[in-house]
Design a protein around this nucleic acid. Sequence first.
DNA 1: TATTGTTATACTCTATAACTATA
DNA 2: TATAGTTATAGAGTATAACAATA
Lengths: 155, 155
Amino acid sequence: MSIAKNSPDQSGEDFDYDLLPGLIGYNLRKAQAAAFQDFSESLKGCDITPGQFGVLVLIEANSGLNQTRLGNALGIDRSTVVAVIDRLEGRGLVAREPAPSDRRSYALRLSEQGRALLHRARALVLAHEERIAKGLNSKEQAQLIKLLSRLGGAS
Amino acid sequence: MSIAKNSPDQSGEDFDYDLLPGLIGYNLRKAQAAAFQDFSESLKGCDITPGQFGVLVLIEANSGLNQTRLGNALGIDRSTVVAVIDRLEGRGLVAREPAPSDRRSYALRLSEQGRALLHRARALVLAHEERIAKGLNSKEQAQLIKLLSRLGGAS
DNA sequence: TATTGTTATACTCTATAACTATA
DNA sequence: TATAGTTATAGAGTATAACAATA
């Protein structure tokens, strides 16, 4: 096996990427794919995806929020949130509790197990961040985050 | 409807994102999601995804390449390439031709229709790129691409 | 009427393992 | 033995449309 998983072509032969390397979108996709792969390996012990990590963080930091607000914060549809929470609840990491003020909605909370897993995951995520950004110094990392946050009208 | 599709929380109420805004991975995901959304809207007439656009570009620029090399160039598994090409072939945009030198593999080519669609798509993609990067000047755009390309060990 | 959560449905992307044909 | 493509299978992410319960 001469080519590692998910790595770009290394076959020495000429390959023409045309306009792709000049596109922000293409570089974004590639960088995100690389980050996703490293994330998965780094958090193998926790078995969570970047999106699930974000959900756990937001629930812990905003305990009692409902699914609609969580979806708005993440920029995903309510119907998508259902499946995300289903998985997390199925693993005993998140609980749907009755919301005191509105019987249509749930108050989302982390279980003890969820809190413990998130604690472990945080440390692994920080190590993962260091690894993917090891080619950049702190100033460049800050610059990258600033530029990314200004993309897509988040302004 | 006070909240636009896939936009971050605008409910005025306090919301705690905790460590997320400081993570490269989180900002990468957010930026990519915004770019994907804009791409989809921009290329509605062509009905292709960013990944499919990349495949069409690479096939045109490297006519006759096989699925394995394409997968290597994109960093995706051979089995994933099959479904991707199936869809494109099903729409008559790509053709699997017998490879002259190796009867195990196909030589991928764009159909006339595929070439025409790619021609239209290129213009739309460039407009899309301008739109998502409208908050950045040329120097910042170049800087962003440079920083992104140095993430994930692509070094 | 509007909102929350849900279900049904659908599409894309992704991978692993095992298989066939060919090298 | 190794490689190219395929299939079966699985999981995650995403959305739209329609529905029940509640506001």
